[in-house]
């Protein structure tokens, strides 16, 4: 064995990983080459020193507890996303009666205003968008319904293909399931509202919910009146998307994806939500 071969095998020898056929040649070289032997001894001593002086430390009980309670908390939050009383299982629509009524009232208001030929004041904030009550407002409302645990998911799975399979053939527009690293798919609901099919998809973002509503883009106009606030519509037509941060910490991003209108709602920074959707290639990347 040459010095070079010996050097290559020092760590294996120190750790008892030397191949059987090398053992004798290795020790022979150590006998005849003092510098190599010295190096081998030094490495073995370094390992011994480290082993003796840098022991494994036990995990402090307080840290152990922190980890357990963190998991406990996480479990509780995930449950909260879909905490469903069994009595609701038989009720088909996801939006409870009051919300359905509110939406119906909005549509009436929109139609009335449409007849008069007036136009709503362009919303400058999410709250204004809420006041003007349109698809975005409906989405924000549904987001709150998700948070309060009143929605019963038709499909409950973190696997995109399960959710995709559930929606397959049931909508006249393609359903989008953005893949964002931090988001875990929770499930989806399909329902109909005033003749419009609505798809609802929920994600879990570290215990917080991200909600995504989807509907057909070209049914947004009802009797010449848009179901999107004019400012949002104008921005969507110009850039293909629209994003706003509400005063209450809720962000809304709406975008057009082919024949689908998507509206994402989450309690996070609007920029972050936009970024997530850009990551998922749903929004154009600047």
């Amino acid at each position: 064995m040459r010095c070079r071969d010996f050097q290559e095998r020092i760590s294996a020898a120190v750790d008892n990983y030397l191949a059987a056929e090398d053992v004798e040649r290795f020790s022979h070289h150590a006998d005849i080459c003092p510098p190599c032997r010295r190096e081998f001894e030094q490495e073995a001593a370094t390992k011994r020193l480290l082993h003796a002086r840098a022991h494994m430390l036990p995990v402090p009980p307080s840290l152990q507890e922190k980890i357990c309670s963190q998991i406990e908390r996480e479990t509780a939050q995930t449950r909260h996303v879909f905490a469903l009383p069994h009595s609701r299982l038989q009720i088909p629509p996801f939006v409870h009666a009051a919300a359905a009524f509110a939406v119906a009232a909005v549509l009436v208001a929109l139609l009335v205003r449409g007849d008069r030929g007036g136009s709503a004041v362009p919303p400058t904030s999410l709250d204004a968008a809420l006041a003007s009550e349109d698809m975005i407002a409906l989405s924000v409302h549904t987001f709150h319904t998700v948070l309060s645990g009143e929605i019963h998911p038709d499909v409950l799975s973190s696997e995109p293909r399960d959710v995709e399979a559930f929606f397959a053939g049931k909508t006249e527009f393609p359903v989008h399931l953005p893949l964002v690293r931090e988001w875990t798919l929770v499930g989806g609901v399909l329902n109909e509202h005033n003749g419009r099919r609505l798809v609802h998809v929920m994600y879990d973002n570290g215990g917080a919910s991200v909600y995504l509503s989807q509907s057909r883009w070209d049914t947004l106009q009802v009797n010449g009146y848009s179901l999107l606030a004019p400012a949002a519509m104008a921005e969507m037509q110009r850039t293909g998307w629209f994003a706003r941060q509400g005063d209450n910490g809720i962000a809304v991003v709406a975008w057009r994806a082919g024949h689908t209108l998507c509206v994402a709602v989450a309690r996070m920074e609007c920029d972050r939500l936009t970024q997530c959707l850009q990551e998922a290639r749903e929004l154009p990347v600047p």
Binding site: E8, R9, S11
Partner: peptide, 8 residues
Amino acid sequence: RSRLHRGR
């Protein structure tokens, strides 16, 4: 093996 040798 080589990283261990070099690291030590």
